[in-house]
Design a protein around this nucleic acid. Sequence first.
RNA 1: GACCCCAUCGUCUAGCCUGGUCAGGACAAGAGCUUUUCAAGCUCUCGGCACGGGUUCAAAUCCCGUUGGGGUCGCCA
Length: 426
Amino acid sequence: MIRVRFAPSPTGNLHIGGARTALFNWMHARAKGGKFILRIEDTDLVRSKKEYLDEILHSLKWLGMDWDELYHQGERFRIYRDYAQALLSKGLAYQEGQAVIFKVQPEKIKISDLIHGDIEFDTSLIKDQVLIKSDSSPTYNFACVVDDASMNITHIIRGDDHISNTPKQIILYQALGFPLPEFAHIPLIMGAEGRLSKRTGATAISEYRALGYLPEALVNYLLLLGWSPGENQEIVEIREAIKKFDITAANKTASQFNLEKLNWVNAQYIKKLAPEKLLELVKPLLLEKKYIADNFDSNYLLSVVKLFQERITTLADFADYSDFFFKQTLEIAPDARKRLEARDYSREFRLLIERVDGLESFDHLSVETAFRALVSELKIKAAELVHPVRAALTGKTIGPGLFELMEVLGKEKIRQRLSAFIKGGV
RNA sequence: GACCCCAUCGUCUAGCCUGGUCAGGACAAGAGCUUUUCAAGCUCUCGGCACGGGUUCAAAUCCCGUUGGGGUCGCCA
């Protein structure tokens, strides 16, 4: 039985790199019918915080990763002490004050990493290792080995940055008489300028959630960083990805996080959504912005959603782009105002209101027919009236097709908004 | 500095193991089509095997070195 683990430390949020490590572990377990174990490494008594733990758990769930077992190192100090005691009695460790320290013997260690192949280390370069600190808490490497062994972890899939911890851990496996697991060190995710940091963009998974990225899209993108489903495939559903996943096929090279590509993946997922589903996702954001109330007409909302589904990159875009459908008083963007002030459109707007009001069946087709008839009579190009009308109705110079949005907006709002720009009233 | 890891378009990657297909795709960028705008979509273009040696009839692919990048050297995890 394959058993893997993700072992976050609740001293910060779940970030992009951690999520990818968790994902590769989870994928490996799910691909091979194994178990995915979550182990909270909260041995740092000072920096570990409950809020971080909650955030990590929530982010993992949001991304769709479920775990089969959950452990907290904070509840296992007794176990680490006992193993340290055993090493003490075997004469493999010594005490220094309250601390227990492992005596490192010089030897050559060779591991066969599932991703990197053979890696050799010389332990004479490693100094004696603290197992139990003076405050009686275990060190990372010690607790990690004791737990990985006692939890029967078969594959340790973790970041490249742990390669140099590996020999330190292997000598502990040997001293404790534990069998060695397989190791797979996956490359790190970098930012544009070196390390991925908050300076270069969002790092926490929760930030991406708030920004309006879909978990499926984020997972898909993360998967593409260091692994490929093959056959030039970019968009891959998680079920299919699990079938194809093979940890030994993961890349060795560090990859750079690229927001543009994430945006593209996210837009692809949004486009694939059923409009009703997109409505559900977008509704909380509109409620939060007070654009709508809880009992808002969902047919109207659905029509608006359909208008924007193909043109948004994130869920947050929706609220920004579609505000004019919900706000009572319109904000006119500077470039839209310029359009409206180019000349006096009072006559055209007045006529358009009349035509629209007179329409028996009101949909984008009939609106367009009426509109085109009007511009033809006025002997102007459609575009000459389209742009100012859009500006007056939406406060923007960009957006969905004018006639489609007019259909959804309705006669009443069209009349109100156009009137606002008619000199001397209607 | 020591030790370790890595090296294909600007970015993510396929190809590498089992040398021999114009080095393929995606994002971004540029152009065009479409068009009432912005997107989307479609078509095209630009652009890469870090460098130097070997091995071989043949090297992105195997070997060595150089350079470059990254990681680690805590009683943090």
